[in-house]
Design a protein around this nucleic acid. Structure first.
Length: 480
RNA sequence: GGGAGCGUGGUCUAGCUUGGUAUGAUUCUGCGUUUGGGACGCAGAGGUCGCGCGUUCAAAUCUCGCCGCUCCCA
């Protein structure tokens, strides 16, 4: 009875359905009336705001500033860098009319802003004194996803940030690429409790137009890898067509060196998949819209008065300690219903206060991630809530990390590779530098090179595909 | 690129084969009783049956077309 309010399938039995039900029923998102588009409800947006604010602090501390770019990009700009355009063209939305009139030049709804940003950069940059230029944009990008859409993971419009930097020399730009990657990794691990593996993308999988791409990847419970952020070294590939030039100290005009990088609300999708369970969401405490929910329980009016007073005091104290707390004093619902509801919504810590607790000057803690309950004295409660939230974060991270490690395999033959892949694992395997091998592996198994870690050099093994001498041992998986 | 399923009050759904007043649950509103793991009674509210053309005395139901959504596989 009433079960249909909650998530009705098990995460391990029907992952896709579980995911969809969880995001909708927990009220993070709803579907928009247009295919492939979703609406973020306040709880969902709040998580995004937490991620945003954490990243913003780090961007600012490393000398980046925020700006704003319009959504419409003229076709002539978008087509300027050929590879780049060819990569994005199939999924660009075009505006061809204003009212009833036809537009002269078609306008693209930004799939990404490199071309627009760099047109402006070429105007703004004259001298080496103007560099480095480090700008970040919080906006949305639009890419037509016609099939296989999924909230947060694959939508036609998504929230993200795109950073763009310009440097006088290659080394400085390449350092920026690494610094940002590290900053991303910290954020994802410290805010979302998701362990990631960082490294390079293969030539085949790199960002179109980049010299190389760094990525952070994580493995989802269904055995698919999720790319959670990328940082690109663009070299002079864009500065040349867009004439991003500067006069150096000897007054010699040179093309600048550039980077671009971004993370999207995909991070939220990853967080849901990694931590959620059969009851729904499990939110990491640092991004949870509500960190602590207080449930008053009473049988008589007399108790009710006392308990409301105590829960109000606790609420005040927690608020003063900057903990996001909510007292659930809805009278029409029984506590059991509230327990289930807040668990589905993933609130990390629940505090129950009933008459039996009050007699002993204590409350009950119920943790979402491991469902453990225990008694806590009211004295010193705030400090214990603070440390409990930290502990929950650490537990969630180390649990996830252990799973990631357990599900990483190392193989030396193509047969082993295929059988490990069917188990939904992340696979380290030797491969040669012939791009054909990578391509054929992808065609035959639909797994691709997710990330080439810095310690992956291996010249003493045989390529799993052609048996020639290997060059590296990248991580393979099927991807989102 | 290929395939499958679905569209009926806010939500889930019966009805469709064989055309005739649209079923039930949930939700919502009010009142009362309840409250330590998804409470109950009574009264009430809520529907262009995805859209359009057609067939018919009559279409949720039949024909045709369109639109949308979800899932699975490459």
């Amino acid at each position: 009875m009433g079960k249909e309010i909650g998530v009705t399938v098990k995460k391990s039995e029907d992952f896709s359905e579980w995911y969809t039900q969880t995001v909708i029923k927990s009220e993070l998102v709803d579907y928009a009336p247009v295919k492939g588009l979703i609406v973020l409800r306040p709880d969902g947006y709040s998580i995004w705001e937490s991620i945003k604010s954490s990243l913003d602090k780090k961007f600012a501390a490393t000398g980046h500033r925020n700006g704003f770019l319009p959504t419409l990009i003229p076709e002539s700009l978008l087509t300027k860098e050929k590879d780049h355009f060819a990569g994005f063209n199939p999924e660009v939305f075009w505006v061809t009319k204003s009212g009833e009139g036809e537009l002269g030049d078609r306008l693209a709804l930004r799939p990404t802003s490199e071309t627009l940003a760099y047109t402006l950069f070429s105007k703004w940059i004259r001298s080496w004194r103007d560099l480095p230029l480090k700008i970040n944009f919080w906006n949305t990008a639009l890419r037509a996803e016609i099939k296989a859409t999924k909230p947060f993971l694959r939508t036609s419009e998504f929230l993200w940030q795109e950073g763009h930097t310009v440097h006088t020399n290659s080394d400085e730009a390449q350092k920026e690429v690494i610094d940002i990657l590290e900053l991303y990794k910290e954020t994802v691990e410290e805010e979302l409790a998701i362990p990631v593996i960082t490294g390079k993308k293969s030539e085949k999988e790199k960002f179109v137009g980049a010299v190389y791409t760094f990525t952070m990847e994580s493995l989802m419970p269904d055995g698919k890898a999720l790319q959670m952020g990328t940082s690109h070294f663009l070299g002079q590939n864009f500065s040349k067509p867009f004439e991003v030039k500067f006069a150096d100290k000897e007054n010699v005009e040179s093309y600048a060196w550039q980077t671009s990088w971004g993370v999207s609300w995909r991070l939220i999708g990853g967080m849901i998949m990694v931590h959620g369970d059969d009851k729904g969401l499990v939110l990491p405490p640092r991004v949870a819209p509500i960190q602590v929910v207080v449930i008053p329980i009473y049988y008589s009016d007399e108790d009710k008065e006392k308990i409301e007073k105590v829960s109000k005091e606790i609420e005040e104290k927690l608020k003063n300690a900057e903990i996001r707390v909510q007292v659930d004093n809805r009278e029409e619902l029984k506590p059991g219903f509230k327990f289930n509801e807040w668990e589905m919504k993933g609130i990390p810590l629940r505090i129950e206060i009933g008459p039996k607790d009050l007699e002993k000057n204590q409350v009950t803690f119920a943790r979402r991630h491991n469902r453990q309950k225990d008694d806590q004295t009211i004295t010193g409660l705030v400090e214990r809530v603070v440390s409990e939230l930290d502990k929950i974060h650490n537990d969630m991270f180390s649990d996830a990390k252990k799973i990631l490690e357990d599900r990483t395999s190392e193989v030396n033959t193509y047969d082993e590779f295929k059988s490990e892949l069917e188990k939904g694992r992340l696979i380290k395997a030797p491969i040669c530098d012939n791009p054909k091998c990578e391509e054929e592996i992808k065609e035959e198994t639909s797994a691709d090179v997710r990330v080439i870690t810095s310690d992956s050099e291996d010249t003493s093994s045989k390529c799993i595909k052609c048996s020639d001498q290997s060059t590296s041992r990248p991580l393979f998986a099927r991807g989102y």
